[in-house]
Design a protein around this nucleic acid. Structure first.
Length: 597
RNA sequence: GGACUCGUAGCUCAGCUGGAUAGAGCAUCUGCCUUCUAAGCAGACGGUCGCAGGUUCGAGUCCUGCCGGGUUCACCA
């Protein structure tokens, strides 16, 4: 459990650690670094010291060692009391420590988070779609991760520039262009009522069908399959089209522009629904010329070498890798060349101290190589590049493939989540006097909350399974569970009497209240940890844990009917802060929170 | 074949730099709405942490080997 070992009171902890260090030095002449952990909830105490490391030097039983240290600490007034279980020294602190800690947290309007932008500027690249088909579940994971990681960094005080590279050029784009011009009969998004990206995707699939049947015909006519794949008429035509595009043929460029715009319109619609956005778009049709000069300069500096045929390579054998091509023998660039150039361009555009690429783990090798190359080219920022590599989303039937139609479409999935949310809400029947418009807004909040939480709560680097047949849950460890707790807290606040004040000096919090205070105070360090690990899952799990604790408290403690006004004020404040932390962390995950549900 | 990565309850997942009896949710079963929202709370059931060694006072966590899944090793992007 997350809350278990993240220590809530760093100052106290470090003080105690030095004190223990002195005691251990004094008793056993050992100079050891002391690390405390939070006491497990089945034992009495707040902090625990593991004494095994000193046992050998002390030449005593672990229990005796713990006793000695504990006694010294009590005498020094560092702790109130202690107990010893095997080699574990459980220490009880004065509960005022937690109250004071929480008080400081509660009085800070910004939840003790770092000031915005106080930690410099950083670039996050994510999304990076091809403009030949609609977005699917894999893209959703990418977008949610990228967007969420950006939010988390922002919350941790980093100014984030969100960018994407749009793959708007190349043979795959020409495929859908060709199929549309041959079979499209002038269809447009307007004439068909289809979203632009879906219309273009339809012709991408159409191309593949035609292409496959051509191959089959050729093979039946006696051609080898490999040859048929290269000589199928539609592919040849697509390649001709690409050539024309590169030569600047006006008709082709016009078509390209038109169809891309359809796609962008479709994408924007999906992005808006998902709540993701970008500060700058890079288009491959513009960036594909970048990088050549950098490579040639690197060649002069001896970073790269040239083979007899004129192609340019880098030798990475001393890194345990092999040789990698960076320029073709005809002098044209490859994927790597462009990425070198684009990275350099980005750091010219923005004065950032680092950049993260949110890209699937099938490109692990590519980014490993890219980062080494940029380091060898001597860019200082190359030390701060990171690949946020995430696992793919699998279906029970296996991999998703756009061309074969075995994908979970992003728009469909979003819509069905919203419908599920509506159905469940209506069944519960709590919204009878809510205006229709507000209800629709709420269904979106809940449906998207469920979807986003479902995806973000799992560790990015793990591949995840999605079963479309089993709808995403709205109970248990889910977005709506957390949203529900938030809504209940808001309801409390609406009913709260005004003008009550907390009596800090004479609080005497009960166990559940202390648990909540400890959990709340950790929020900034959880944000920091999530930022450091670039993992929304860290925040999702922390928040789930917090909400479970709050629900336990809520169940057993009356808030509005507590025994005194001071206690009502305190419990309301606790609740309010839980609500604020929920809102803040859900905001980091791109999830909205409702005032009612 | 080389490299990387993953393997924890029937299913989906937590488990931080090694620490006490491995935790949640879903599913199944049992309680709790004449007190603040039951999308909730409490409980039961469910595990040789892929297997075998090793390091350590202590291993789900670190090391080695094996088994199984995935990715990658293009003058594609």
């Amino acid at each position: 459990m997350y809350a278990c070992r993240n220590l809530p009171t760093p100052k106290i902890v470090t003080m105690l650690e030095t004190q223990i260090q002195d005691i251990v030095q004094n008793l056993y002449q050992v100079d050891a670094t002391i690390e405390l952990q939070e006491t497990r909830k089945e034992f009495e105490g707040d902090l625990t010291l593991v004494v095994f490391p000193f046992v050998r030097a002390a030449k005593k039983r672990p229990e005796d060692v713990a006793e000695e240290i504990g006694a010294d600490l009590v005498q020094a007034g560092a702790i109130v009391s202690y107990n010893v279980v095997k080699g574990f020294l459980n220490m009880v602190l004065d509960s005022n420590v937690f109250v004071n800690d929480f008080k400081a947290f509660a009085l800070d309007a910004n939840l003790n988070l770092p000031a915005p932008g106080s930690k410099g500027q950083y670039i996050v690249e994510y999304s990076s779609p091809n403009t030949n088909k609609p977005l699917h579940l894999g893209h959703i994971r990418n977008n949610l991760l990228g967007s969420s990681v950006s939010n988390i960094l922002e919350a941790d005080g980093v100014a984030v520039t969100k960018v994407q590279i749009i793959n708007d050029r190349g043979i795959h784009i020409c495929k859908s262009m060709l199929a549309w011009s041959e079979y499209g009969n002038g269809e447009t998004p307007e004439s068909t009522g289809l979203k632009g990206d879906h219309l273009v995707g339809k012709y991408y699939v159409k191309f593949d069908q035609v292409y496959k049947s051509e191959i089959q015909t050729l093979v039946e006519g006696g051609m080898s399959e490999d040859e048929a794949k290269k000589l199928a008429p539609s592919l040849v035509k697509a390649q001709e089209m690409l050539l024309k595009w590169e030569q600047g043929d006006e008709a082709v460029i016009d078509l390209w522009r038109t169809m891309n715009n359809w796609v962008y319109e479709g994408f924007n619609h999906t992005y808006k629904k998902l709540g993701v956005s970008f500060d700058k778009n890079y288009y491959e049709s513009q960036t594909y010329v970048l990088g050549k000069d950098d490579v040639l300069k690197g060649l002069e500096d001896g970073v790269f070498y040239r083979k007899e045929d004129g192609s340019v390579w880098i030798d990475l054998e001393d890194e345990g890798l092999d040789h990698k091509l960076v320029l073709r023998r005809d002098g044209t660039s490859v994927y790597m060349t462009q990425d070198i150039g684009t990275a350099i361009q980005r750091f010219k555009d923005f004065d950032a101290k680092g950049m993260t690429y949110v890209v699937g783990n099938e490109q692990d090798y590519h980014f490993k190589v890219l980062f080494i190359i940029l380091k060898r080219l001597g860019y200082t920022w190359a030390e701060s590049l990171h690949h946020l590599s995430y696992g793919m989303v699998d279906l029970p039937s296996g991999k998703m493939k756009s061309r074969e139609g075995t994908v979970v479409d992003a728009d469909d999935l979003i819509d069905s989540m919203i419908q599920d949310a509506a159905a469940i809400s209506k069944e519960l029947g709590k919204l009878d006097n809510m205006p229709e418009e507000e209800q629709d807004q709420l269904f979106q909040t809940l449906g998207l909350g469920a979807l986003k939480y479902f995806i973000l709560k799992v560790d990015p680097k793990k591949r995840m399974l999605f079963n479309p047949a089993e709808s995403i849950d709205f109970n248990g460890n889910t977005g709506p569970f957390i949203q529900y707790t938030y809504a209940r807290i808001q309801s409390l606040q609406r009913k709260a009497p005004e003008g009550l004040t907390v009596n800090w000096t004479d609080l005497n919090p009960n166990e559940e209240e202390v648990v909540l205070m400890k959990a709340l105070v950790q929020y900034p360090s959880m944000v920091e940890q999530a930022a450091k690990q670039l993992s929304p899952a860290v925040l999702a799990n922390y928040t789930y844990d917090l909400v479970k604790k709050y629900n336990g408290f809520y169940q057993n403690n009356s808030i509005l009917n507590a025994e005194s006004d001071e206690r009502i004020a305190f419990r309301l404040l606790l609740s309010k802060k839980v609500g604020e932390v929920i809102a803040s962390s859900m905001n980091c995950l791109g999830i909205q929170v409702p005032n009612r549900m």
